[in-house]
Design a protein around this nucleic acid. Structure first.
Lengths: 339, 339
DNA sequence: TGATTTTACGAAAACGATTAAGTAAACAAC
DNA sequence: GTTGTTTACTTAATCGTTTTCGTAAAATCA
């Protein structure tokens, strides 16, 4: 690898001058600057990120925390993969790279997420798709490393949050307008904030609309779990006074329910209506097109990246800590009108 | 950050001794070794990857090349995302990290993929989901950096390839056994090797089976493009002597065709049969379950990781260059029997 | 006891960059 | 002509490691 030393030798100047010339300092003569740059290009020089990071304490590298213990999470989780993809494109355009900060072990002995971040010297970290009650996650969030979280507002940290409350309200109001009054909701794991937000808003909006949702219509399910969705759909369909519309935790679950409904010979939306959440890619491609909230993942990734880099480069002044991104109601064709 | 210098001061030994103690060299006394390690843990020491990489020329970091210009590629491409996910888990278990090596620019001026890899000092690179005719990709593949490619055999480099030939043959033979004789194939972009392999094998197997596939049944389409699939499906359905079974380039495309077919009031598989390729997650969840080849992406990612690390750590002796991974025929319910 | 080997450590250079401080030459000002 | 200021460089320290080489002290051997 050609280093600054090689260039300095070739140009007959000191290494310091080479460094300054390449970094455009103003105490190098214009002519020497040009000569050095010319030579550097000619010799195929480019810097060594380790050396630079060691000296400057800045790596131009951003960590990504994406835990993927469960199947169907991490990179294969469509929602987060989309956000990450957009995040990646944005940071790369600004000269940053992305490194995964997970449950790695160096040599022997595991590093905590925070230690790992320091080990790699990342300038900031994107935290998404993790269990936010995890101690290590909390430790990282509370550290002095700039951090942005997705869908989890941590006090004074940067957070990009999709507007779950508005989403569920939009859906419920839409379904109500279509004439539905008996509405069930198979929601996700109760631990997460996302679930709480959606469920609370669901109940709140129902109240505002004067809807009386019986307890048996509110079922704790799981995210992205087809068998679970199928099971609870069956329970609902078996009820004497069954709902006319079922809300699912996400689009995947809705598809699980959909299959079950179709298997019984029921038609969607003529016999029963269903509603998803997320706006998965595939959903636009099945029949009938699912009624759902399409989350603007590209926007979320971009804004997360912009804000994080802003925080990294101009610490101290972050305009807004929590950015809420609204989703869009996709009316689809899976909710019928009740006259 | 606590460095070796701090430990050396605290223990009253030299930095060299600290380094040796932590790296378990044998010219340090057992008692001092213990004392130093104890102190290091106590002080919360962990190494600085930049300094170490600078000195040792080994970063324990692997680059990932995943170009994502087109929508629906890169991270959001389910097939590759699954491979990457599995790759990631495997390398992390062996102490390596993953950094994306894409069209980044440092300061000003873009780096080529190879330059970028050297800039970050990665120990090896996973190349997937790219245009292999790209000059920069070729340059990287031909370089001295250990490299593993997915679905592209480059002369003497490591490559993990899903067995497209066997897959398409299995599918065609299965469909043939079900009694189909008029079979169409809407295949992907013709540039890629994958397409060529599949199409050639399709024709070859057809010949072996004594099938006469008319030219109008072989249509050049696109991967993962629903509208295209829909369009060509319509063309096929409009033919006087239309096929009884349609092969699609992938599962996504098959879904595009499926919707079109259903929209015409035709039933799958009673009126017409369809076949996909890849084994996307969602495909198992739609009705009717799609007949397809499920590619073993977890296995591919794992083997890619194992072989690459092997190549990195023991250069010179790679057992096999090209590993071919067979997919599994998922019979599904989208191919009917013709009596 | 004296010579030789082994053990356990330290000193110092190096990896490739950045940067504060120093300096010689050129130039300007009075 | 002396002093002060720019300009255009160089020197040298430094970031946190690793590693070669050197060297006392301890252990072994004759």
């Amino acid at each position: 690898m050609v280093s600054m030393k090689d260039i300095s030798a070739a140009c007959g100047v000191s290494v310091a001058t080479v460094s300054k010339a390449l970094n455009d300092h103003n105490d190098v003569g214009e002519d020497t600057k040009l000569r050095i740059r010319q030579k550097a290009k000619e010799m195929g020089y480019f810097p060594n990120s380790s050396a630079r990071a060691l000296k400057t304490n800045k790596s131009y590298n951003i960590g990504v925390l994406f835990v993927d213990e469960a199947p169907q999470s991490g990179l294969t989780h469509e929602y987060f993969a989309n956000i990450l993809d957009s995040f990646k494109v944005t940071v790369e355009a600004k000269g940053y790279d992305l490194t995964f900060i997970n449950c790695n072990k160096i040599r022997k002995g595991r590093l905590s997420y925070l230690e790992h971040s320091r080990f790699r010297g990342v300038d900031g970290v994107l935290i998404a798709c993790v269990d936010f009650s995890d101690k290590e996650v909390t430790e990282l969030i509370r550290s002095d490393i700039p951090v942005v979280t997705i869908d989890y507002p941590a006090d004074d940290r940067l957070a990009i949050i999709s507007d779950n409350a508005k989403g569920i309200e939009d859906l419920l109001r839409y379904v109500y307008e279509q004439g539905h009054r008996k509405i069930a909701y198979i929601y996700g794991q109760s631990g997460s904030l996302v679930t709480k937000t959606r469920l609370n808003k669901f109940k709140e909006t129902a109240k505002e609309l004067g809807l009386k949702i019986p307890e048996r219509f509110l079922i704790k399910g799981k995210y992205r779990d087809i068998p679970f969705a199928a099971k609870y759909t069956n329970e609902l369909l078996d009820m004497k006074d069954r709902p006319t519309c079922i809300f699912y935790a996400d689009d995947y679950s809705a598809i699980g329910g959909m299959n079950e409904i179709k298997a019984r010979g029921l038609r969607i939306p003529e016999d029963i209506s269903i509603v998803g959440f997320d706006g998965s890619d595939i959903v636009a491609k099945i029949e009938p097109r699912l009624t759902t909230i399409i989350q603007d993942t590209r926007m979320m990734g971009r804004i997360a990246a912009d804000n994080l880099i802003n925080l990294i480069e101009k610490p101290g002044k972050t305009p807004r800590n929590h950015v809420v991104i609204e989703g869009v109601l996709e009316k689809g064709r899976s909710v019928g009108q009740i006259i």
